[in-house]
Design a protein around this nucleic acid. Structure first.
Lengths: 189, 189
DNA sequence: AGTCTGATGTCACCTGATGACATCACTGGG
DNA sequence: CCCAGTGATGTCATCAGGTGACATCAGACT
């Protein structure tokens, strides 16, 4: 199958991230990314649906793992706890390399279009979790609320984890658990 | 000030919604919208930053009113209750004309780009509410969680309200209150 | 009447994105 | 050892979204 230099997709991803960090998202043209990766712009769009997607192609695998984790939760577990278990797996993957995550986040936060795409990815994860909850028998409204609020708390915690000092809050999962506890306290008030 | 036919912004908005309903968002070109409104494409972009924004220009006012409502909440009120009060005002405006809301929602749900933009608008509302909460003394983490989960519940309820039969769940605010009660029950479990 | 102002038209141009077709390297069969 | 098939890539053409620069025209103000 391969020819020329294999691994064009990976090279494009690295080239894109590097250029986005250097000049910013808008200032980087697809032709530049492709040139740095040693391919043409047309090839870029064969690997990624659009210019933004190059920063989000890991989301599909993340979602798969989250759904697998949710499927492994024993039946009868509360909806919110089930979502929390699924997001624990996400946190494990996401929380692996804080420095990389910070660089990526800096690029995303600096551009409106990228923030929109990130929100869409989290929304897709939430919708998938809600679907899975419904399929395991959870009431539809309860499933939606558990998934949406669970993912919302996850996002808040993720941003705090990124913003925290190098020593503090080292484990993303701990930050998420703290945030979840805060939600429980809030709603109980 | 105006010359030619005044009210170009409003005409463009109506023309856009009509065309989006007829052919869909992607199939509608900015030039078509402008032509139906009796202006040129260049003028469209003077009124709306991009093609999507024509469906979301009410969001700014919505956010203002929500913040005003939040400011009117007596100090000492719990963060989640304060957010709920702000979203009640949003619901009052949003829940005015269900048929219009349904047509608009059908257009938005049919297109990925539009869904992304809608998520961004809700995220902006959430961020603004969290900011306001912090300024009235709420702890930062608590403010983020209250705003994010509050808006998340609001979104879930809004979608259910749109999907409900013509007679059922007539008042959006009731649907939201039901959903909020469900969140409290979920987190208490 | 003269001038100023603001919204619009006109023109040129860039970039993201896509379709159609050619091309090249590698694969597997003969 | 050659050859047809396959898939990723290059090349070319084209479209739509979006923006800057400049001209223009109607009404407001003096």
């Amino acid at each position: 199958m391969g020819r020329w230099e294999p691994g064009a997709g990976g090279r494009l991803r690295e080239a894109a991230l590097a250029l986005f960090v250097e000049r910013g998202f808008e200032q980087t043209m697809v032709a530049d990314i492709a040139a740095r990766a040693g391919v043409t712009a047309r090839t870029f769009f064969r690997h990624y649906a659009d210019k933004r997607e190059v920063l989000f192609d890991g989301a599909a695998e993340l979602q798969e793992r989250a759904l697998a984790a949710l499927a492994a939760v024993p039946p009868g577990t509360g909806a919110l706890d089930a979502v929390a278990a699924a997001l624990d797996v996400v946190a494990e993957l996401l929380g692996d390399d804080r420095e990389f995550a910070r660089r990526r986040q800096a690029v995303i936060m600096a551009d409106t279009e990228l923030r929109e795409r990130e929100l869409a990815k989290f929304a897709a994860l939430s919708a998938a979790l809600a679907d899975a909850l419904r399929q395991r028998g959870t009431d539809a409204l309860e499933a939606d609320i558990a998934a949406e609020t669970g993912v919302a708390v996850h996002r808040v915690a993720y941003e705090r984890w990124l913003a925290a000092g190098d020593g503090a809050d080292a484990d993303l999962r701990d930050v998420i658990h703290t945030a979840l506890a805060r939600l429980r306290a809030l709603t109980a008030a």
